[in-house]
Write a protein that binds this DNA or RNA. Structure first.
Lengths: 130, 130, 130, 130
DNA sequence: GTGGTCTAGACCACG
DNA sequence: GTGGTCTAGACCACC
């Protein structure tokens, strides 16, 4: 599981985990029927408290993404992938929309803004590929 | 004062206020020496708690944007505009970067993402101009 | 708020709280727009941990019964009552069904069972009215 | 052995098994001296983990219902039946009482509740006989 | 070992 | 003051 946690960026850690698990399912990196790491294991890996992971997993159960298997961990629900694919777009879109809305309302020059967005996008892609 | 508050978008209200005041100064909508609305007046206008506005104004004092006038409210500091212009770019850029980073990490198809960003930008501009 | 908590009867405390809040809304004992006790206050009153109450309240938010008011507590949603009235019947029915199913499967004499149910019902009503 | 397991109804599986074995003894479906299925056999039949069955059997030993036979499984104790008959009534009564108490405390109309109980009882009996 | 429940308490954000 | 978040750790049920 490759999750990137940014501890103090305003988004609760449990929410970051839940979103990224959905992204992984949407992407096929986590497949239906596949087991996710145990609460304790993921907590250790991310260096966060087990209860924080547990809360993320509880949210994911409520959102029909994970299924608890008594005593054996949790697995991705069979029907989770299409739901996650749709939700991924919405989650990403909503966050982008908020950032873009603020950017526009800041009265930055529209052309400057457009350039800024593209530059950031390019820069982040380069960071990612290196 | 034309401020747009989004109560439950994850950004604290006092922070939304402070940021938008900076944007207004950067833009020249609020000029050096100009008085800002009183705490209670702005609170009424935005339908938020006066303490929330007070906290935003306190932050703006600390950030060298506002200056208290003896008993008569606050005004924009003479030297605030260039500082706000610089900070505006940083504030907007940082939020965009966070949203774009998550979008990229969600493994949405890069082309799809690029299209999404542009579509949202266009849609928001249309909303704004209507 | 008159809630009866039975600490170790197999039903988690947070679930007992959530169910009984729904019952109170269904009954009109808690009306739409009315504030519920704060997390800390109810925790003290029931002699349980605040986090236990917080979890119950979180569930009630997810179930569209309560609405958080920033800094001022939580209130019953305007549209909660009909939903709670319907759900109350389901919640009660489901638990009764489980108990009755086990009773029948225990092969107690059906006539004896019927008598038992009525006797218990009567006895509990007397306890309640005294 | 005709046991009905309901995996996620709040009652631990091992407890469901233990209770139903007692019911079977009370009913005479399991007679004194009769052998019960082996742990792994019953586990297969119920599609549960063998350790779960083992735990139920351990409880039943402690409750003086089963007796281990050297290496050959377990049998019903000679004196188990009357004890189970008494306990059955108590077990069933207690669960009914809990469900009925909640139902009364939910402030459902008493007449409505009475009707509900009878309707559920009737419906379950029909299900059972078909 | 697993997840579920609960407690205790710190700290923050908000009003 | 409020609720939200997070940590730390106990205990239980289940496997």
């Amino acid at each position: 599981m490759f999750l990137h946690i940014y501890p103090h960026n305003g988004v609760p850690i449990y929410d970051q985990i839940a979103r990224q698990v959905k992204f992984a399912v949407a992407d096929g990196a986590l497949k239906a029927g596949e087991a996710v790491p145990s609460v304790r294991e993921l907590a250790r890996e991310l260096a966060v408290n087990p209860n924080t992971v547990a809360r993320a997993y509880r949210t994911l159960q409520e959102d029909q993404v994970l299924l608890p298997l008594r005593g054996t961990g949790m697995m991705v629900r069979q029907d989770a992938e299409p739901r996650c694919r749709e939700e991924r777009l919405e989650l990403v879109r909503e966050r982008l929309r908020q950032a873009l809305r603020e950017a526009l309302e800041s009265r930055l020059d529209p052309q400057e803004l457009r350039t800024l967005v593209m530059a950031e996008l390019e820069q982040l892609r380069e960071e990612a590929t290196k």
